[in-house]
Write a protein that binds this DNA or RNA. Structure first.
Lengths: 341, 341
DNA sequence: CACACCTGTGTCAACGTTGTCAACGTCGGA
DNA sequence: TCCGACGTTGACAACGTTGACACAGGTGTG
């Protein structure tokens, strides 16, 4: 086992191969105008010295760190996994690396966020909600010259490259499905207010109610924050009412699973006693029992595409400014007609 | 919206405050021996220029990038989420950042891995299996002077700081539980052979069989690779046999969930028709139905602790070399006595 | 044969920051 | 009054790499 010794530099390699550092640099970066003989000597020298380029020095002089960030809020949400997979898929076999920035309560600290990203030396970032909707952050990134692309913004779509799904329509469709099954007393578990998607999805639900001639029952709207625990608590509050809903619309799958557990604890069977729907088609919506009726948002594809948008900017290709992604209503086993009372 | 202009440097701040760059550096790093008046001037200047230190330059001269890596193999495995959460928890409010390195087939490419980590300029890494068991990688990291700590290695424990659970005992306990319920024909779904844990867990099962006077039925051992799909396929092979097992021991929860779906497709009810256990206590083992009997490995805590070991090395504190973590047999609803045939 | 141009190589200055060392006061004590 | 110590500041050289430029020699063109 070798001792930790000073890392070989490009100069050491040069000396070893009898050429200048610059020539080594040329060989290692595949630049033209180096004779084959020298190329071979340099490669041999590099190998025998176990030379590996120092990214930091390279980053400093090139003004490119090859570091991309992913900014999101809740590290345990199941869609974060998809976000990462999407980015990593695009980044595989590129020299870019992924740095993760889970940030608690982004909105209150949006002032710090850009400074954080700036001093981390990132070349670009992918912003997930709610950062994707924060104008302050967008502005600061632009002025710092950091490329960015967004996932699921609902506001100011034109300001920066965006990957969008039509939350309103998707929410309307899933609510319509529940209404058509015959439900009339329908509870809603909203996501965190800082996410613009919460508002959009609620609007979609309300459109469906309106179209069906149903009132929008504000007393059956409970606030959650996209975590399973909050879904559990919200469902408990809904199910404890005198007039308990026969169906619950949760604004993401995590909260729906929380509601599912809450229902199970009360001895209710889904979907016989309670119809339950989520949003996102995250992995757990397929794994839990019953699998959840939900709306598929192509989070993986959006993340991959967003990453591509960032890379395009870094490579001076004109980035796509707006990519509309399709959603899909997935009817699974968690929805049924309401029980006859 | 401001135009992307050149980032302010420490020199600009110095000029603006009427001091040298070095003095600015001192103020910003909280070094002593700077008069309060100058400190204030420098801070004001920095704020008015929107100055943020350039981590890359700092990294170059300090030989510290403040970047820690997480090396793992399968980006979708549910325990990777726990790994990340553990690391990020320890890293919160430190200047360190997390860079993720999902690497396909680590074992075949262990030669490249260290080079990759080295040239990324990492200060340290946390190695998850199977990288944690790869001597080549350990060796290369040591010679490159990169701090490391490991999670769940089964081999060469003494070589680098390790966070371990006793896989053998844990596996023996869960197998014993199944045997005590009365099962005699027990299938096994192994994890990927490159993970030393697969071997260890299989040994634990075999000890339980031996102690109970049962033969170790090699014909009932199926190979998986820790993914849900592989668990699904392996379970199908097991259940299609003439003498199908009444219980299946899966070496992680993902594969157990795959087996659960396979059983469901065949019309089998867990646990009435088939007893099923997993390993890891990952989130999905609690969410699926029935919730899985499994062994809790404190992955979150191990990751947090491993991160602490790395940081200790970077701060020249003597790191803990070995941390044994407790496991827990969690008996849930997926296990029951075998059906009377 | 002069000239432009290309190939192959080297020199040097950046990139933004911090460590080292020296210089300049000022103050307390001998 | 002089000396050493200390607090405060700056000059300068790193850190490892690449971009801009220079230069030597060869090759093709008019």
């Amino acid at each position: 086992m070798e001792k930790a010794r000073r890392r070989a530099t490009i100069i050491d390699v040069g000396r070893h191969a009898g050429v200048s550092a610059k020539t080594v640099s040329r060989v290692l970066n595949g630049e033209p105008h180096v004779s084959p003989a020298v190329q071979q000597r340099v490669r041999d020298a590099a190998a025998s010295l176990h030379y590996h380029p120092n990214m930091l020095a390279r980053a400093l002089v090139r003004q490119r760190s090859m570091l991309l960030g992913l900014v999101y809020e809740n590290p345990s949400a199941s869609y974060v996994v998809e976000l990462q997979r999407g980015m990593l898929t695009r980044l595989a076999d590129t020299p870019y690396r992924l740095v993760v920035f889970p940030i608690a309560s982004i909105i209150e600290r949006s002032g710090e966020v850009a400074g954080l990203l700036r001093s981390a030396g990132l070349d670009g970032v992918v912003l997930a909600p709610p950062a994707a909707d924060d104008l302050r952050i967008l502005n600061d990134l632009a002025s710092a010259g950091i490329a960015c692309a967004r996932i699921g913004p609902s506001r100011a779509i034109e300001l920066a490259p965006s990957n969008i799904v039509d939350d309103i329509t998707a929410a309307r469709e899933i609510a319509t499905h529940v209404i058509e099954l015959g439900h009339r007393t329908i509870g809603i578990i909203k996501g965190h207010a800082s996410h613009a998607a919460s508002e959009a999805r609620t609007m979609g639900y309300s459109q469906a109610f309106y179209a069906a001639g149903l009132p929008m029952r504000l007393d059956l709207v409970e606030q959650g924050d996209f975590t399973r625990e909050s879904g559990h608590a919200a469902a408990e509050r809904l199910l404890a009412r005198a007039e308990a809903p026969t169906a619950i619309l949760a604004q993401n799958d995590d909260m729906a699973v929380g509601a599912l557990l809450a229902a199970r604890e009360r001895g209710l069977t889904v979907p016989d006693d309670l119809t339950l729907v989520g949003f996102d088609d995250s992995e757990i919506s397929r794994i839990c029992w019953p699998p959840l009726t939900t709306v598929r948002q192509p989070v993986f594809e959006m993340a991959r595409e967003a990453t591509d948008m960032v890379i395009a900017q870094l490579e001076d290709r004109p980035p796509l400014l707006r990519h509309d992604h399709p959603h899909d209503l997935l009817i699974r086993a968690s929805t049924a007609a309401p029980p006859r009372s």
